[in-house]
Amino acid sequence: MGILLDAETRVCVVGITGGRARADTERNLAYGTRIVCGVAPGRRGQRVAGVPVYDSCAEAAADHRIDAVIAYLPPRVYRSALDDILAVGPAWVHVVTEGIPLHDNVAGLAAARAAGVRLIGPNTSGIITPGQAKVGFLGHATWLMSPGRVAVLSRSGGFTHDLAYLVSQAGYGVSTAVAIGGDAVVGQSFADLIELCEADPGTDAVVMYGEAGPALEHQVADAIAAGRFGKPVVALIAGDFLDDHERGSVFGHAGAFLEGPDTRAAAKRDVLRAAGAYVATSVDDIPGLLRAAGVPRNQQ
């Protein structure tokens, strides 16, 4: 079990002929991911690691059922390529691309919402359901996490590895790990994903890593308080150091108006704690908090 991705999920890789995508595809196929097709305009008929390549998602969808898309898109073609992806109606699209202009990012999110497609990212590293499937470049070091029943949701793609390793070493294992993206605006929020975790019988708890900035954690607190999430949440929120520095030299206060009610790491921790989440002060606290929450360790 797990959320979003399992061994049966049929994945299309958009931008599959690029260096990063090609390398990830080879490793993810070897891991067991069911990558059924790829897209790269002008490359129809080629194969990458045996995966057939099409000019567009529309063309690929004529030959393959596509459940999900992992997208490596140059920022300049992001919007048009995303429209092509959304038109074939995958359950989700995971956008690896970094450096997408904010206006294009927000317009893309609006288009995804209108199409009923979950957009994860942009600027993220991937999803892994250990032992079943992975996309992107999350979990290439396959030794670092074991299958289990704790979901890991993280703002940082790189730090997802550290969290997954810690959770695995502590004897819990990971149901699914998702890097939600590091941009100021991201598609699927923590709150969106914990609701999937609530519905997943293979997930007993969530470990989440957030940072000071846009107030995504307040939505988690709201979901817990409203009873939409009843499993334990262990949260680590970093970014206290920002309190020591002057905020952006141009738009300090207006930026704060736009980021949300109180975007300091300490305020986020307070909100989560008040809602009933287990709040870690440091990385090392996490295993103890999972124990305190009564989360069962792996029986495997």
Partner: peptide
């Protein structure tokens, strides 16, 4: 990698280092 930066800066702060 940028992923550990916030953790590192916070930990320095907790230990009274800058």
């Amino acid at each position: 990698g940028g992923g550990v930066l916030a953790i590192v800066h916070d930990a320095l702060r907790r230990h009274g280092l800058r």
